[in-house]
């Protein structure tokens, strides 16, 4: 073996740790967004935090889907994206007009 100081399956060790650290980072990002969602000074900050929160949750689900090598989680991420956009638009409309459907 040429590189004797490394285990034979080192790319998979790198992939495993990289996916774990990516999940950690996305969890921290969700915590930052949750801070804005809960303690944001004004209502528009809370809507911005909600938008960031659902994007981060979608990315966390995609990362988990790669980790368990299953495409079931892709559909869940797609639905989170669709419904999150609807929520952002409805809340912006509410902040602008005071009602969602006129």
């Amino acid at each position: 073996m040429s590189a004797s100081f490394l285990p034979a399956d080192w790319p998979f060790v790198v992939l495993d740790w990289s996916l774990f650290i990516a999940q950690l980072f996305l969890g921290l990002a969700m915590a930052c967004a949750a801070y804005r969602l809960i303690l944001g000074p004004r209502a528009q900050d809370r809507v911005l935090g909600l938008d960031t929160f659902y994007v981060n949750a979608m990315l966390l689900l995609l990362t988990y889907g790669i980790r368990v090598a299953s495409t079931i989680y892709f559909e869940v991420a797609l639905i989170i994206g669709l419904l999150g956009f609807t929520g952002t638009v409805a809340l912006s409309k509410f902040l602008m007009r005071g009602e969602v459907i006129e």
Partner: peptide, 24 residues
């Protein structure tokens, strides 16, 4: 493919964390 996937996922998560820290 394992190394490329690891790099892409790590970079994506790092950039997302950067954006969320900016939001904070």
């Amino acid at each position: 493919a394992a190394l490329l996937t690891a790099f892409c996922v790590f970079m994506g998560a790092f950039l997302t964390l950067t954006g969320s820290v900016g939001l904070l």
